[in-house]
């Protein structure tokens, strides 16, 4: 029983950490590819067929909510398949990505 309570407390702490933008970015990077997020959103969350996710990702709760009940073409992923803890780590990965260069600083975009 004590062990169960400790696990539950650990889970709650992890959730809180995720909500604050923390989490295991390295693990999140692995999950981002393993779970196939990159297929539509790009390997660095830059967007493509799916919307851009990084940098400055949405809060973990919002991401988890959308993953489980998407509105568009994205398949719904149940919690069993993509647990909320994984979402937190994925978000941490997305939050760790640098911003892109400014448009004005990219020579190729000069008309």
């Amino acid at each position: 029983m004590k062990r169960l309570i400790l696990i539950a407390l650990g889970f709650i702490a992890a959730q809180a950490a995720n909500a604050a933008g923390e989490g295991d970015a390295e693990r999140g990077k692995v999950l981002f590819q393993k779970d196939g997020c990159y297929e539509c959103h790009g390997l660095v969350g830059q967007g493509g067929v799916g919307p851009r996710l990084a940098p400055n990702p949405l809060p973990a709760e919002a991401i988890a909510s959308y993953i489980h009940n998407p509105a568009g073409e994205m398949p719904p992923y149940v919690t069993k398949v993509v647990p909320d803890a994984d979402v937190g780590d994925i978000r941490a990965y997305l939050a760790s990505l640098p911003p892109p260069p400014k448009l004005a600083d990219i020579p190729l975009f000069k008309d």
Binding site: G42, L43, Q46, G47, P100, P101, L103, I106, F109
Partner: peptide, 10 residues
């Protein structure tokens, strides 16, 4: 054009 900058150096 702005959207194209994301992942620019990836």
């Amino acid at each position: 054009r702005q959207a194209a900058t994301f992942g620019w150096d990836a």
